[in-house]
């Protein structure tokens, strides 16, 4: 299987690897996937008072596509508002990394991770706008 240059670059030089303080009020954490399924993503966002995502960190257990997908979304969410970040679609991720069909689930998981992180952040700050926490549109799994 030939992977795209973009995917390999994210796998070999993952961006924004790390962790932030789970308990901090301005940090939202999303932990999605399952070890038994072979992929787990932890994505964290740090949101400033203006509602802009200032920083994002990830850690991923999974194949190269899963690592690259999560690395990519940390780049994408930075500088976006929470609601804008919630608009990121798995199809955009899959397209950017040219994921092969059997790897589409990795992009779905990355989208789920963003939404879970946003959900967590909103829960902490008392926002219950659940509309932004829609189910992933792709039911490939």
């Amino acid at each position: 299987m030939a992977y795209s240059k973009e995917l390999i670059d994210h796998y070999e030089n993952p961006r924004n690897v790390g962790s932030m303080e789970d308990d901090a009020g301005d940090v939202g954490t999303g932990l999605v996937g399952a070890p038994a399924c072979g992929d787990v993503m932890k994505l964290q966002i740090k949101v400033n008072p203006e509602g802009i995502i200032e920083d994002a960190k990830f850690k991923t257990f999974g194949c190269g596509s899963a690592i690259a997908s999560s690395s990519l979304v940390t780049e994408w969410v930075k500088g976006k508002t929470v609601d804008e970040a919630g608009e990121i679609k798995n199809t955009d991720i899959a397209e950017e990394l040219a994921l092969p069909p059997v790897k589409i689930h990795c992009s779905v998981l990355a989208e789920d991770a963003i939404k879970a992180a946003i959900d967590d952040y909103k829960g902490k700050t008392g926002q219950t706008d659940t509309d932004a926490v829609g189910e992933s549109q792709d039911a490939a799994e």
Partner: peptide, 11 residues
């Protein structure tokens, strides 16, 4: 443990 096999093979 804690490292997925296919991800490892890619490295």
């Amino acid at each position: 443990a804690y490292v997925e096999g296919e991800g490892l093979m890619m490295g």
